[in-house]
Amino acid sequence: MQIDLIFKIAAIGILLAVINQVLTKADKSEIATLVTLSGVVIVLLMVVDLISQLFSTVKALFGL
């Protein structure tokens, strides 16, 4: 079921926020930026996978 992805994204977001706060408190804000970037890329990869699945389904369905 694709609804798992929503909770996965939420979990990644909360985890990223916590890591970000810890790293910022430890004066490692440049690493915090990298962590945020990698988290966004991971989520983007999951969402793009789902979008490509949708587009191939729509292509097959409507004969585009």
């Binding site: 694709q2 929503i6 994204i9 926020a17 945020t36 989520v43 969402v47």
Partner: peptide, 28 residues
Amino acid sequence: IVILLLKEAKPELAPMVSVAFGVAVLLW
């Protein structure tokens, strides 16, 4: 509700949730 939660923690991930939900509904 998940989007509301994420908007506070990580605003850049909030649109991802709406995209994922939209794709999921269309796939259903």
